[in-house]
């Protein structure tokens, strides 16, 4: 197999595999830029999920997402069968907030340490909001295998885009008939980009 063929096949098969991610990033970026067109700023209503007596010591002093606070939040989520991605904070010594989030819903847990009460509310996302949540999700900071695997796929999508650019440039250069117009496109793109960055 020649280098050209490997290059072409890499461009093609990687493109087909990563097509859903490219589509998602395209659609979600458009929604983020034009939020008012999609009612994305309108927060969905919070529905009560449960409220119960609950007791667990929380030793953290309350710095957002510090390891001790996250560990306590993870235990609370485990007790409620709600394990997954979350953020935690302690706005005052008696209250702890946990935001358990997924693409399609958000669950807000409020633990009143003084009253030993745990309250949970749920917010269901519209499809346009779910797509935007996919856009903003990445990295390896959240627990569970699926969250970390999604982080890996986001990294693969980024590397895929870099490889598309490189393999696309090679494919263009190997087509002598299109070199002139291709050079206009590459030159125009690079110059426009640099000019915008310089003046922006």
């Amino acid at each position: 197999m020649t280098f050209d063929k490997i290059n072409r096949r890499t461009h093609l098969y990687m493109g087909l595999f990563l097509m859903p991610w490219l589509l998602m990033y395209g659609v979600s970026s458009f929604i983020v830029i034009h939020q008012s067109w999609f009612r994305s700023e309108e927060a969905p209503v919070w529905e009560p999920l449960f409220e119960k007596s609950y007791s667990r010591p929380v030793n953290s002093q309350g710095v957002n997402n510090e390891p001790d606070l996250r560990a306590a939040a993870q235990e609370i989520l485990k007790d409620c069968n709600l394990e997954g991605a979350f953020w935690a904070n302690k706005p005052n010594p008696d209250t702890m907030h946990i935001d358990r989030f997924s693409f399609w819903e958000a669950i807000r847990l409020t633990y009143s340490i003084k009253d030993q009460k745990l309250k949970a509310e749920r917010q269901r996302m519209r499809p346009n909001q779910a797509v935007v949540r996919m856009h903003f999700r990445g990295g390896y900071g959240q627990p569970t295998f699926l969250n970390k695997f999604w982080g890996l796929l986001v990294d693969i999508a980024c590397i895929g885009i870099i490889l598309w650019v490189a393999s696309g440039l090679i494919m263009w250069w190997r087509l002598p008939k299109l070199r002139a117009w291709g050079a206009v496109a590459v030159g125009g793109g690079v110059l426009s980009f640099l000019l915008l960055i310089w003046t922006l």
Binding site: Y25, G138, V154, D155, A157, C158, I159, I161, I162, W164, V165, G168, L169, M171, W172, L178, W181, G182, A185, V186, G188, G189, V190, S192, F193, L194
Partner: peptide, 20 residues
Amino acid sequence: HMFTGLFLAPWMLMYALSTL
């Protein structure tokens, strides 16, 4: 597909690198 790819290559590189 090809010419838009060539023109927008700097934007795509920027988005991929910044996401990383």
